[in-house]
């Protein structure tokens, strides 16, 4: 009994010390600013900024290699917040707010190639090889990656219509009508 307790304690202490030392000496240096910027981006990994995902975009922002206006889905609000965080002023007067869109498939042109399905980062496309593909509108965040790869131009981007389900008050200072 005592032997068991003793040996386990000794093991715990030794391994704990090794792990503690490893965490200290092998620590990966993280830029805290990068983490904060990442938290401000939408996080949908849509890739519209040209980076693989929001993490890479945040890294570029932190290094000052990307403009604060890089995020199309984030729009003006995210651009302003990023500029404030980075302590720079961004000229947003020219910035045109993009209306939220969703993808829609023209069924007469879909050939069931599954290419759009492989592109979708939110699994918003339902379909299989040589069978009809359909966009599930609710998860679609309008990144247009499927639109770009469709070989037959069957996918069109449509503005989200105002319905009882999608209407909301415009944000303060937005200056734009509801969408």
């Amino acid at each position: 009994m005592l032997m068991a307790i003793g040996s386990l304690t000794a093991m715990g202490v030794t391994l704990g010390t090794i792990l503690g030392a490893a965490a200290k000496f092998l620590a990966v240096e993280e830029n805290p600013l990068e983490e904060e910027l990442k938290a401000m981006l939408p996080g949908s990994q849509c890739g519209q900024c040209g980076f693989i995902g929001c993490g890479q975009a945040a890294a570029a922002l932190a290094k000052g290699e990307a403009p604060v206006t890089l995020c199309p889905p984030g729009g003006k609000a995210v651009a302003e917040a990023l500029a404030k965080k980075l302590g720079i002023t961004a000229d947003l007067s020219e910035h045109e707010e993009k209306v939220p869109e969703y993808a829609f498939i023209n069924e007469a042109l879909c050939i069931g190639c599954t290419r759009c399905i492989r592109e979708c980062s939110v699994d918003a496309i339902l379909g299989a090889n040589k069978l009809m593909h359909t966009i599930i509108a609710e998860p679609c965040h309008g990144c247009a990656k499927c639109f770009a790869v469709c070989p037959t131009d069957a996918i069109v981007m449509r503005p989200i219509e105002v319905t009882l389900g999608t209407w909301h008050w415009s944000k303060p200072g937005d200056g734009h009508a509801v969408h």
Partner: peptide, 20 residues
């Protein structure tokens, strides 16, 4: 899992390619 029920294609893929 997401079980999906599919519908058949309307277009004939060969025909769409020929048209394009």
């Amino acid at each position: 899992d997401r079980v999906e029920i599919y519908r058949p294609l309307i277009a004939d893929p060969k025909e769409v390619r020929r048209q394009r």
